[in-house]
Design a binder for these strands. Sequence first.
DNA 1: AATGAATGAGCCTTCATTCAT
DNA 2: CATGAATGAAGGCTCATTCAT
Lengths: 215, 215, 215, 215
Amino acid sequence: MELLTFQNLSPERKEEIIQTSFAEFALKGYESASLSEIIKRLGLAKGSFYRYFSSKKDLYAYLIQNASERRLSKLDNLIEQPGIDFFEVIRQNFFDKLKFDLENPVIGGFLYRVMHERDNNEVADLIGGLYTSVIKITQSIIELDKFKKQLKIQDSEIVAFQVFHMQLWLYDYVAYKYKIDYHDNIKRGQPVLNLSDVELNRVIDVSISMLKNGI
Amino acid sequence: MELLTFQNLSPERKEEIIQTSFAEFALKGYESASLSEIIKRLGLAKGSFYRYFSSKKDLYAYLIQNASERRLSKLDNLIEQPGIDFFEVIRQNFFDKLKFDLENPVIGGFLYRVMHERDNNEVADLIGGLYTSVIKITQSIIELDKFKKQLKIQDSEIVAFQVFHMQLWLYDYVAYKYKIDYHDNIKRGQPVLNLSDVELNRVIDVSISMLKNGI
Amino acid sequence: MELLTFQNLSPERKEEIIQTSFAEFALKGYESASLSEIIKRLGLAKGSFYRYFSSKKDLYAYLIQNASERRLSKLDNLIEQPGIDFFEVIRQNFFDKLKFDLENPVIGGFLYRVMHERDNNEVADLIGGLYTSVIKITQSIIELDKFKKQLKIQDSEIVAFQVFHMQLWLYDYVAYKYKIDYHDNIKRGQPVLNLSDVELNRVIDVSISMLKNGI
Amino acid sequence: MELLTFQNLSPERKEEIIQTSFAEFALKGYESASLSEIIKRLGLAKGSFYRYFSSKKDLYAYLIQNASERRLSKLDNLIEQPGIDFFEVIRQNFFDKLKFDLENPVIGGFLYRVMHERDNNEVADLIGGLYTSVIKITQSIIELDKFKKQLKIQDSEIVAFQVFHMQLWLYDYVAYKYKIDYHDNIKRGQPVLNLSDVELNRVIDVSISMLKNGI
DNA sequence: AATGAATGAGCCTTCATTCAT
DNA sequence: CATGAATGAAGGCTCATTCAT
């Protein structure tokens, strides 16, 4: 993980480094992302970078961790509400994720790409864990007594897969339907403003409905 | 696309070249895949390769085309059967795809990876079309009169997404559930034999059920 | 020089080969010109080419020879006319050369480029001879009794240089003044029609005047 | 242009790099010159070179700039002298140029070659400007009131061409007449000492005379 | 005789990382 | 401690030429 020298940087500088790195990895993927490019863009000394992170992979691991924390779902609070409906939890979760990704295209794009880089041997270990843990968390929620009885399918694992992947493809779907150019948004680093909550909710309503009652 | 000189090779040599390339791209992705590595493994001269394909991207395009043809679904015949149920079509399709991928881990792994490389600017043009066309085909089937009335959701586009992505994640799910190491299978190039049709059908039954009636 | 097999080709095929080669060398110069490109453009078999010419340099030598013959000046007839003025000979020569180059941009461009490739070690031997011989011929004309007395400068060698190079730079001058894009003309292989004889003569008049009486 | 890292090198190292590069480009021309060769000869690491110059073309541009500055004519001072004769200016200029080229065969050879590489599409942009600007400067001098009246030809553009190209061919002429092997001199990197100022002046006298009163 | 497959050295360039200062 | 110079393997690709068929 990141070295102490990185933690000692001013929050502003840290954020600059993180954002620039997010953008590079989001745009090019792990292998093609260029440390040299990041370093040049930051006006950093080559050596300095290696005093913050011990390797490219180390930086990548840090970014995954950092991005995950930022997009941490607020599921916990939700789940604990008495009498809450399972599908309401999912709806909220979908909405939060999509909202976050549209408002933070760089981080959203980064995490999206990370999820699709599980096959890359080089970083499979970093992502495999994340992927597995997300599935497992979803699964454990499903297995809560109060939710379990709301579901028809008893195999919680496959249901978790379905829920998790639907959340993943919602990102694709929105991009496809509204012809959003994520690459461009990442480059410009600007939030995708042109999608109202109403529209967002309509998309999510349909997907929740599919989840609930099938297509 | 491939040059004439490639077509003139013996079928055995062609297949060697194709398989070695599939494996390299499946294992490392487009950018990181190394032509030099492929060429070395094939015992080719550097220059010889470029008499078969005019560039790395050209080879990649050929492989996508070739793999797609090999895994071509037999949907057409199915659809035309009188009185056929929509979900039966999907089930058959899921089964064929999974079966194919398990028996041809190299090609399956290649195509899986291709689908997730849409973000790669370099090859987005090759893949974007494929991705879009698969969605569109799925959508057009859904819109057939005889199937439309079997569905609750009227937005055929989002349904197509759901169906398509479920088929995609089934691959992930099987790997996850049965702890299949695709990387290893690709390297060894051997079919994944240890999954019986019975097991396969069980997985697919559940997923079709989710599709039909929700989770 | 060219091999016998080349001579046995039909005149049309020979001409095709020559013209395609002229264009390639004119456009890119000796080193950068690509035999592969020429061969591809001609739809030739690689091996066939080497049955016509034994090497790239051999082809180049043949082209120089061929182009030189085509642009052979008609000086001889002119010189023998009784009472002819030296400057009239030069004027005619300049006019013929420029006219030829404007009407045959490919060959003109080729020869122009050849003249400037004397420094290239690889082909210096081919061009050095040509260059020297042109100077020597010019010099020998100057030394004819009937012309010698018309000149102020007794060093015929330096005068020959001056005359020869002026003829060379006239090509540059016309291109510069009339913004002629030789590259484009070579690619299109079309005569440069937009320069009338009147204009041509005006340019040549001035240059002859400079030669005769100084600037 | 050159990167900062190059400027930080010791003057000696910089000069080594420059001279080695001059020689390579002078000997082989832009396309055929090999960066690998230069780098090997300098005992550099491949990557180190690219910390000095961002590309082959960048190095070439730098060399052109550097060589031009070294051979900068002292015309300005000369022109401002009251009562100076135009032909005296030219004579001085010719002398300086030739002297410089004979004493610095590598740079002279480099610049000579550069001037003849205008046709090379790859670097035409670098050279076209230089070529045009030299002509234009010459032309503007000619158009100075105090010089204009000394000339017979009113078309200053064509006169500028004549003057500029005569200066160019003087280099050729000297090589031709004294059988100087520039290639060999460049390889050996040694000044061409065997031409006395007396001889040089004789050549220039004749050429100035031709310019003044014709041949 | 004619073909076109094969060759492999060589090209320019980029990369993550190290380490002396 | 911070710097930035140095590294050299590896990348994709082109080339003129050879030679078995």
